[in-house]
Design a protein around this nucleic acid. Structure first.
Lengths: 209, 209, 209, 209
DNA sequence: TATGAATGAGGTTTCATTCAT
DNA sequence: GATGAATGAAACCTCATTCAT
């Protein structure tokens, strides 16, 4: 008899209002970007009045931060789990990470990375810091793994630089995919292009084999 | 026949006001992003009132389109010139293009690519199309050149996919640089990382050597 | 038969919650004035939710009225007691009253009189009436005492006018003290300036001496 | 044919919009106090939309400050002129000042001093400072004049304290008059009570005469 | 009694755009 | 070409109050 009981399929069972708000905010940002996230629209989607949103978040900024946290959860947390796994080699980890990243970007219409772009100019400092933190964490995970791969004998590119290159593929997908969706390419990206990319960038092991 | 041709006597230089408006718009977008471009602020910077802007552009969207055109001018036009040059090999051309792109991004705080991101969500359809056009042109230039390099014997990656990878480096720079500026990395990017990246991605030459 | 009488078993002390609410309301008004008294803040200070306040007071206005009553209690009740005392002369009573008033104003950051000002503009008619009643009572107490002092031979100023002048000192303190606190002056006010003021305004005794 | 030409009697000829806004704001504050001054109502009274107000004042606070300046103009400026006059004795100046002050308070329903009260709690720091400045200036004018009167042989009260007492009469009027208007008293205040008050407070000269 | 969520009206402010001059 | 005032819609946010539990 509680409100939570008469769930329809669109209400994931135990989502408190707070979570539901973030869910809907994510949806809207997916459609219209960070800047298109208006409190009025959000309230409508949630099915309450605007004032009600402020019971759960003190600010619009607080909602944006929760969104950032959610993105972190979808993107960074799985990546951290992959990186800390015990079974895979560093090279395999890198490959898995990139595949996860690219897949997520395609699923979310590149939202995560595009939000990084929007955050660069945001007036909300905390949001900017948070987004910078996500990028920074991501790159240091990649750097560490690159360092563990080793093997680029002549030591041409530093791990940090290699990490940047590895992030390049998701970045390129993020920027070009929403404007120029290409289903054929999309289907090959995760399973084919990513592994090949890793192979090209980190040829060390190949030689050693 | 270009728009700049129908100058009246009061515009001795080529429609100076119009150009100046776009100049200042570019400046502002550099500082505050697309969304931070307010008509009021723009008018102030130009040194006129808001109403005056509407003598030169019928819309804010018209100004955004002019901005897109300017970005095209700084980014795509030089790239086209490089691509159509007669002296360099395709590989050299690709390298030059990437160096130009990365250099421009660093100079412009990544504005061009970030604007692509913002445009993805824009409500102005024409702007979205134009930005899509820039990306698309860029990628087809890269694809063509990759095709001319040839040599990836087993034909693992298609030119279009390779083009995406090549665009990855600038994309990664665009996304990470504004939030996490890194001067040491920056100084090595253009002259060192880019050539190495091209060498890794297009190993054809290596065999031929 | 008073409202406080119908206590239920859950209110062992005399309607403690109600009292506490007014206490906290007084505190807040002391800090932020009448206008700064928000139901939300009040609830927080009391340690309950906003809805709970409406169990004890039907309105915000009801709380404001209770506040006015409390001010009456701190200001007017002691003054009435002084005025009805049997031992002092009318002149001594006036002096005691003014000293009490000034002391209270300093202790309460002038809240009582400033609230009078705010109440002048209040949309709550009952509150306005109540505040007017406080002022009015105060002045008639003063008038009566002034009449009892007698002695202004030529009958220049009527008691009511003299009462207004006597209220002038507290009023001036109320208006200037919160904006321009002056500790040196403050320490002399109660024990020195007030008696001197009474002596100057009611020179009757001087002649008799 | 300009808009200013078709003046009705209610438009004082050369009031720019900016001045008109302050005029209307003053009117509203007179009716409903500082807190009752809503941008919407103000815009209605001026006959424009809310947005238009922001062409002339960047803030609501800016309007409040303009209001404070206007009060300063009506109250403090004439008082300064009186104080710096060459013909009157200090005692006469004090009397004139108090008469001007009391008259103004009655005309303006005590707005100036009540605004001081409201400003004490205002969240607008600049407004608080400004109001404090007005009070402070006023008191130092009074103090100076009191010092010039001299003559309180035994030196009982310091000029600053005497200034506070002098301000007491206007203050009492301000606080009691709006809540308890009294026409009979009002008519005697300016011409009768004020001079008598000065005579009582500053008896020095009387002796010397 | 109390909670916690919600409402609805209203608050200040911003912004692209228009228009008479 | 340009100004300066104005508009109207929409933005974020606050607050007293209500109500099911």
């Amino acid at each position: 008899m509680t409100k939570a009981t008469n769930t329809t399929r669109s209400e994931p069972q135990w989502s408190s209002r707070k979570e539901e708000i973030v869910d809907r905010a994510f949806e809207i940002a997916l459609e219209s970007g960070f800047a298109g996230l208006r409190m009025r629209l959000l309230a409508e989607r949630v099915g309450v009045t605007e004032g009600a949103l402020y019971r759960h978040f003190s600010n619009k900024e607080a909602i944006l931060l929760a969104l950032a946290a959610r993105i972190e959860g979808r993107l960074l947390v799985p990546i951290r789990k992959i990186a800390s796994g015990a079974e895979d080699s560093p090279r395999e980890k890198l490959e898995k990470i990139l595949r996860h990243h690219v897949r997520t970007l395609i699923e979310t219409r590149s939202l995560p990375l595009l939000l990084v772009g929007e955050a660069s100019f945001s007036e909300h400092e905390e949001l900017r810091l948070r987004m910078g933190g996500i990028i920074s964490s991501y790159q240091s995970i990649l750097s560490t793994l690159v360092g563990q791969v080793g093997g680029q004998g002549e030591g041409e590119l530093e791990p940090r630089e290699m990490a940047l290159l590895l992030m390049g593929l998701p970045a390129a997908v993020a920027l070009s995919h929403p404007l120029l969706p290409d289903e054929k390419l999309e289907s090959r990206l995760v399973d084919y292009v990513v592994p090949e990319y890793v192979r090209l960038l980190l040829p060390g092991e190949r030689r050693s084999v």
